[in-house]
């Protein structure tokens, strides 16, 4: 049963991208375990505001685990200790009375800190802009049922497409690699006949952009998939490798 707990929160505070960051510890009393982690941070912020202090800046929006905006590294895990969820879906019942919870921002060269727990993830958008699409304009497309797609293929594409672009994969990876993110999109589109046509071009363009932006090299540790809030599979990385190598050998 959920009850009330007292906790300490050790939060990374950093005034700006170039400022020196540090940890600060705050005490919170009487936190209901049914509250979400972000609601706990809300309460902390209200407390800080009441003390006329600067509240903690953090990214969040939908609070139902789909927008991919929230991004906290809680007790050594991106999105915290529970599995297959985002930070906003983490609940205080995963913590016990008297616990000190450490909260950090994503740390990766490609995700510079903006303030406190807020990081800049535009690198992911740039990778998408390099090729994460099917080149069709609006209008003039065939009927939706003109091409039949086997259900297992469509389902696998859907699973890859469920990526929310939160950045937990790169944050979890000891190499700062974005391969799971890139491979999810490459996989989704390479599986479907609509996307197959430019699959080779897409794989090359997206990988080139990923490398250019300073993400690391994948060493298949699998930390990304283990921490992915949407359980995107490592098999996608294999498919990306395959698509990329085939494309390069064809050149």
């Amino acid at each position: 049963m959920d009850s009330y707990i007292n906790i300490k929160v050790r939060v990374w505070r950093q005034a700006g991208p170039k400022a020196q960051g540090h940890f600060e510890t705050y005490e919170l009393k009487h936190i209901f375990q049914g509250a979400s982690f972000l609601e706990m941070i809300d309460i902390l912020n209200e407390q800080l505001i009441a003390e006329k202090k600067d509240p903690i800046a953090f990214d969040h929006d939908c609070r139902e685990g789909i927008c991919g905006m929230c991004s906290m590294y809680v007790n050594g895990h991106p999105h915290g200790p529970d599995s297959a969820i985002t930070t906003c879906q983490l609940h205080m019942r995963h913590f016990h009375d008297g616990e000190t919870i450490t909260v950090e921002p994503w740390r990766s060269r490609a995700f510079p800190v903006i303030k406190d727990l807020m990081v800049d993830r535009q690198a992911y958008d740039k990778i998408m802009q390099a090729g994460g699409f099917v080149s069709v304009n609006t209008g003039g497309v065939p009927d939706a049922n003109a091409i039949a797609i086997p259900k297992p293929v469509a389902d696998e594409a859907m699973d890859a497409a469920s990526c929310i672009g939160c950045g937990a994969c790169a944050a979890a990876c000891k190499n700062g690699s974005a391969m799971l993110f890139v491979s999810a999109k490459v996989s989704q589109l390479a599986l479907l006949p609509q996307g197959k046509i430019e699959a080779a071009k897409r794989a090359k363009a997206m990988v080139a952009k990923m490398d250019e932006l300073g993400f690391g090299n994948c060493t298949n540790t699998g930390a990304c998939a283990a921490e992915c809030p949407k359980s995107v599979s490592l098999a996608n990385i294999a498919r990306l490798n395959r698509e990329f190598l085939c494309a390069k050998f064809q050149d």
Partner: peptide, 28 residues
């Protein structure tokens, strides 16, 4: 690769890192 990967991690390290389930020790 290791030099590149360390650089990709950025200058600040995590203060706390936990073991992920299903991730082999050897792989890291």
């Amino acid at each position: 690769l290791t030099i590149q990967n360390r650089a990709a991690r950025g200058t600040d390290r995590y203060a706390m890192e936990a073991r992920q389930e299903g991730v082999q020790w050897a792989s890291k």
